[in-house]
Design a protein around this nucleic acid. Structure first.
Lengths: 144, 144
DNA sequence: TTATATTTGTTGCGTATTCAACAATTACAA
DNA sequence: TTGTAATTGTTGAATACGCAACAAATATAA
């Protein structure tokens, strides 16, 4: 069997590219003293676009499981960034709402995200990016 | 400010695509009763191509830090898949070597990897994949 | 209405990840 | 050669992730 170059495979390249973007985002957030990790950022983006949704909804929207969301909300709540409020009609669920602090963070945190992505795409043409995004979306679709 | 669609960004799409491939690989490994996680798989691929290297070398080759490699090697050693052997000329370092079991796993595990990638790329043309890989490599280069 | 199934969130467990600090060893410069 | 760097691996702490099991609440079927 010919040697398979694992480290040049699609899966590996994808993994390393993602990790690098993740670390860059973490770096920018830390530099600006925004007390949020990239994973928490992911949950927050969903809330910025969709405030006061349930943890279940957050889990679906961030491609994670409920247990995970429980713990991330625990931390965000401890940091005073979100609050758990009772759901009006379903006593199993919470409504996760942004606090003022949580809302105030958005502009700067979003700038970190934009900057990380901009860094990562330097020298890439819009056409190349379009094809790349299409492939990534296709991958997601194929595996979902 | 216009609403920024975080969930359609390059960073998010990259993250979700990677997670999906990761989960698919985990699924295939589990189905075949290969006692290795995708993260351990990553370390193993490096050893299959480059046996008996140091943990530092493994960390560089897998885009992780040394602490991480220490713990993954702990697990792989406990599972009887690799062994720590003393380095001939540097008493700080180990040589990580595959056991027979570690070598025997390769064929089947590699098949899991290939299958996961094949699943993820169904319907993607070679030309599209080429562009996508170029963008991903560029991202890695930009952020390294 | 009542019994059963499903949904929502939580918790335990094992693994993964980064950061910072540390000891032992090695490399290097004065 | 001796004192200072740097390197290698380890550990602790905090966060993250997926899976399985669980209780409480809700939905649904008999």
């Amino acid at each position: 069997m010919a040697i398979y170059e694992y480290d040049k495979s699609y899966g590996r390249t994808l993994g390393i590219a993602y990790t690098q973007v993740y670390r860059r985002l973490a770096k920018y957030l830390k530099e600006r003293d925004i007390p949020v990790t990239p994973d928490q950022f992911r949950v927050l983006t969903h809330l910025w676009q969709n405030d006061s949704c349930s943890q279940q909804h957050l889990a679906e929207g961030t491609n994670r499981d409920r247990a995970n969301v429980t713990r991330i909300i625990d931390i965000l709540e401890r940091e005073g960034i979100v609050e758990r409020q009772p759901h009006e009609s379903d006593r199993r669920a919470f409504r996760i709402v942004l606090t003022e602090k949580g809302k105030a963070i958005e502009a700067e945190a979003a700038e970190c995200g934009r900057q990380a992505i901009q860094d990562s795409l330097e020298g890439v043409t819009p056409e190349e990016l379009e094809v790349c995004m299409r492939v990534l979306r296709k991958t997601i679709q194929n595996l979902t």
